[in-house]
Structures are given as C-alpha cells and as structure tokens.
Simulated assay, not measured.
Amino acid sequence: NPWRKVGSNQDLVPGGSSGGSASAVAARMCMGATATDTGGSIRQPAAFTGTVGIKPTYGRCSRWGVVAFASSLDQAGPIAHTVRDSAILLKSMASVDPKDTTSVDIEVPDYEAAIGKSVKGLKIGIPAEYRMEGMPGEIEELWQKGVQWLKDAGAEIVDIAMPHTKYALPAYYIVAPAEASSNLARYDGVRYGLRVPGKDIVEMYENTRAEGFGEEVKRRILIGTYVLSAGYYDAYYLKAQKVRTLIKRDFDLAWQNGVDAILTPATPSAAFGVADQDLHADPVKMYLNDIFTVTVNMAGLPGISVPAGLDSNGLPLGLQLIGKPFDESTLFQVGQVIEDAAGSFDPDQWWG
C-alpha cells in the first residue's frame, strides 16, 4: 500500500485480492487498472488506497481469462482515480462474450453521461443492519457525512431493513470455498500450470497442490471440499444457498419500495499494518473485513467504493454504494456527489 500512517513508516496492507491494481493506481503508476471481485476484492482495496473501485453486476463484464475462484460470485471491473475514470473504463470493459456464458447481452449505456447528473429526488436507502457491533466511531461518522452530502444534493434518505445481512458472511464463506474447491481441482499438474514430480501420479498430484497453493488457498479448498462432502452438503452448502436467496430478496424488496441505491461503509476500518495481525493464526479476523461487501456478490448486484475521507491516522476510508442490477449508471451519478463533497486523496510520495 503506498499510504503510510502520519509519522509512521510501517508497511500497510493494500487490501485483497486486487491490492496490486489498487496500489498501482494510488501510487499514480497508472491511470486505471483491471481487477476482480468475489466478495469485495475490488471495493476493499479501493477503500484502503483512496481509489474508486466498481464491482459491476454479475454478467456485465466477461471473465474470460480470469482464474476462476467462485464462479457464481466472481466479477471483473476497474479501479481508477476518479468516478469519471472508472465510468470510462467500465464502458470499455462491459460486453457480452461468447467465451463467457455468464456474460449478459444487454446494451452498455454511456456511463460517463451519468456523471454530473442531479440526484434530486433519488431515494437512498440506509440499512440499519450495517451498523455492526464494535464498529469504529470514525466509520459511523463518515457514513453520516455521506448521508448529509447526499441530502444536501437533493436525494431523499430512507431507512431500510436488510434482516438477512448478518448471515451473509457465514453463507459466503461456505459458497465461495465450495466453488473454489471445485474450480481449483483442475490445477493438478497434469494439463497446465505447475507440476512437481512424484514417484507416481497420486504423489505428483499431492506435491503439485501442496507447493502450488498458498496457505489461505489451501484452507479454502479444504473448507470447500468439506462442505461439499457426503453428509455435509445439505447441512452447509444447500443451507447457504437458501440464505443467499433471502439476502437477494432483502435487496429486491428495497428496490420494490422505490429505493434507487443503498449507502453503506465500504470497510470496517482503514488499512492495517502488514505485521499488525497474525491473520494466519486467526483467519476469521481477516474474513470480517468483508462484512460490508459480500452481500453485493451474494445478490449479484453492482457496488462502488468511493474515497470519502481520512481517519485519525491520515489513512483513506471509503463509502460504498449498492445499486439495482445493471444500473451502474446510478452508482456513478451518486458516487460523483460523494467525490465532489469529499475531494480526492493521494498518499505522500515517500518512495522514489
């Protein structure tokens, strides 16, 4: 992460898993970058680095060429410096692709045309369930600032209920590893990728998979294999899919009640130090960073993270907007209001 806490040289995480893209954009190494988001991997790094990241609607962009993690959740999108830049990038990325059967053949609007449009009369939902226990005061304060900015711009703010939000994270960490376990089974050293020799084919499989995957990937494959195994499939995977349907229904009800977009925090904290937390000892702590973002993937909706302020250590914080299916234009329209009110954020150039 190119950002540093005020008065500190500590290395900070850039967020995952598109942290490389977000860091490159934040450090002004490029104007924009492609990224992928399965449970928040565009929006969380964007929030941690003071950049704009949009995860489009499931099926809006082709995933051809992306290593599949969780096929029903993965989506490609851009990370850029500004809302306008991300709109321009998404216009180029969005398309139907015969090589990706999940991509949707819907006309791609001119997203840039939404920038600067008035939000007067738009209904913005505020879900009470995103006020998590133990959430830092700075995050709540930023959220309220965002509400005020949108109100001042003429939007109508309404409280909404998303009762199944609390089940999103556990359901996500069943669905995603199950699909990862299935998708990553093809990396066995036979047809492509790494191959580590062994005395027979079974040992070659074992050696290849042991060396070719990192600790966290192995953990997710093991969790996924377990929840898909006989006797556990119904208890875990099937139940998680039912929860997913209920999460989607919460959003559907909000849209039916006239809500145009939903405003939430993007992350429960600013970027933390690389050495701050022993995430290998307590991976659940790491998974909790996805608390505000996974619902969007579970429901297949578009979501954007826009930089909205700095915390007490001078680190960027983002606000997230969630939209209706294939209504990214509204997210750019509303996101621009937040950007105009908050301004842009760049790290001090301590390198080079």
Rank of each mutant, 00 (worst) to 15 (best):
I88L: 15
A94F: 10
L222D: 01
I174Q: 01
P163Q: 12
Q144L: 14
P78R: 11
L331R: 02
G224A: 08
V147H: 10
L228K: 10
S95Q: 13
A114N: 07
D340M: 08
P177R: 04
G323R: 00
I157A: 04
A27R: 01
P14A: 11
P177C: 12
V294G: 01
W143N: 03
D85V: 03
T49N: 15
I221N: 02
A271S: 11
E112H: 10
P14Q: 08
V202D: 03
N297F: 06
G198V: 02
P127A: 08
L73W: 08
K242V: 00
G318F: 04
I139P: 02
V175C: 08
I304Q: 00
Q10G: 09
G189D: 01
F292H: 13
G53M: 09
N207F: 01
T295K: 03
S72W: 04
P316D: 04
G40N: 06
D188H: 09
E179M: 08
P325R: 08
A281G: 14
Q349A: 15
Q44W: 05
S71P: 12
S92W: 09
G7Y: 03
V96N: 15
F272P: 05
V190F: 13
V337T: 14
Q75E: 10
T49G: 09
K166A: 15
A47P: 07
K123S: 14
D37E: 10
V334Y: 14
W143M: 07
V217F: 03
V6K: 14
A76W: 05
W351C: 08
G193K: 00
G318H: 04
D282L: 09
V66A: 10
L12I: 05
Y58K: 07
Q333Y: 11
A76K: 02
H81V: 02
A176F: 03
V202C: 05
E129L: 11
V158T: 15
Q320E: 12
I322F: 00
G7H: 02
Y58R: 07
E129K: 08
T102Q: 03
A113Y: 02
D311I: 05
N297G: 05
L222I: 15
L184I: 08
V66K: 03
R249A: 11
I79M: 15
E328Y: 04
D200L: 07
F292P: 13
A235H: 08
A80G: 00
F69H: 11
G77R: 08
G323P: 00
S305Q: 03
L150A: 09
A261N: 02
K248S: 13
R220P: 01
A24N: 03
Q144A: 09
A299R: 01
H280C: 12
L169G: 01
K99Q: 12
M132C: 11
Y233N: 10
D252M: 05
G323Q: 01
D74K: 11
V334S: 07
R249N: 12
S229P: 01
A128V: 14
S62R: 07
A47R: 04
I160N: 05
G224W: 13
Y233G: 01
I115E: 06
A342S: 15
S17A: 08
G323T: 02
M162G: 04
W3Q: 10
G137R: 15
Y58Q: 09
D290P: 12
C61P: 02
A281L: 06
N207P: 00
S41R: 09
G300W: 07
Y192C: 05
D159Q: 13
I174K: 00
S329W: 09
S18P: 05
A114P: 02
Q320W: 03
E107H: 13
Q148G: 12
L253S: 15
V196Y: 08
